[in-house]
Design a protein around this nucleic acid. Structure first.
Lengths: 122, 122
DNA sequence: AGTGGAAATGACAATCATTTTCATATTCGA
DNA sequence: TCGAATATGAAAATGATTGTCATTTCCACT
């Protein structure tokens, strides 16, 4: 149960836009003059996830990324060619996910969704 | 561009029920008397993912799991605890993806969507 | 059948995120 | 203030995945 370090990590997360990996957070805090250790960053993130202050997601390569809860949940539209991404409101998806999950008796449900294609510029 | 190893890996995947990590596949093949190397298992899986014969998903700890995918386009409902998966018809999603893509001028669109939670048994 | 070169293979080392270990530092209540 | 409980972080361990490179297999063409 860290206390100080947890809030340090939390504000670092806010500073970077509420979306980063443990390693990125660590580096960001180092650059900012912080004296926190990598181990503590991991431990603090674990605490934050347990108390449901942040969400734990996964990048495509499996690296863990942490997101502040309460951030608007959204999805991405990604261009296969140039990598341009557009953030999308996902109301329809949320409902779909909830409905499917409850039909099959699943609880504590989350979801991922991405659309990819070729954008008008490419 | 393997050929033999790729099909070996493929049938190993079938044998285990079309759902396993690279390490598990490797061990399973070893036990079955196969002489394939771990490196080659990884390469073959990569090939299979590229040619879209198998899906690449992630377990909760970030480990990659590979899954045979039939031609029918569908989505998955995955249990975080036991890994049980349910295939889902995705009509609603297809429309959502198409609509969003066209609004933003994207062509050749594909998408991914997964729902994960805790199943009734866990 | 023989050969030359490209592609495939696998043992091993390297990488990278994450976790453990363990010794030290800090906190907090009595 | 003393001491136990907890927090911290450096370094080592772990485990999946990827890179390296020497060897082997495969083929097309003699």
């Amino acid at each position: 149960m860290a206390r100080k370090s947890v809030s340090q990590v939390l504000s670092a997360l806010e500073r970077v836009g509420g979306f980063a990996s443990a390693q990125e957070l660590y580096q960001s805090m180092q650059r900012g003059g912080g004296k926190i250790g990598l181990t503590t960053v991991y431990r603090s993130l674990q605490t934050l996830v347990e108390e449901e202050t942040v969400d734990l997601l996964r990048r495509e390569d499996g690296e863990a990324i942490y997101r502040l809860c309460g951030e608007a949940h959204h999805h991405h539209l990604i261009c296969k060619k140039c990598g341009r991404t557009v953030e999308i409101e996902g109301g329809a998806i949320e409902n779909w996910a909830k409905r499917i999950a409850s039909v099959h008796g699943f609880r504590d449900v989350g979801h991922t969704a991405e659309i990819f294609g070729t954008c008008s510029r490419c």
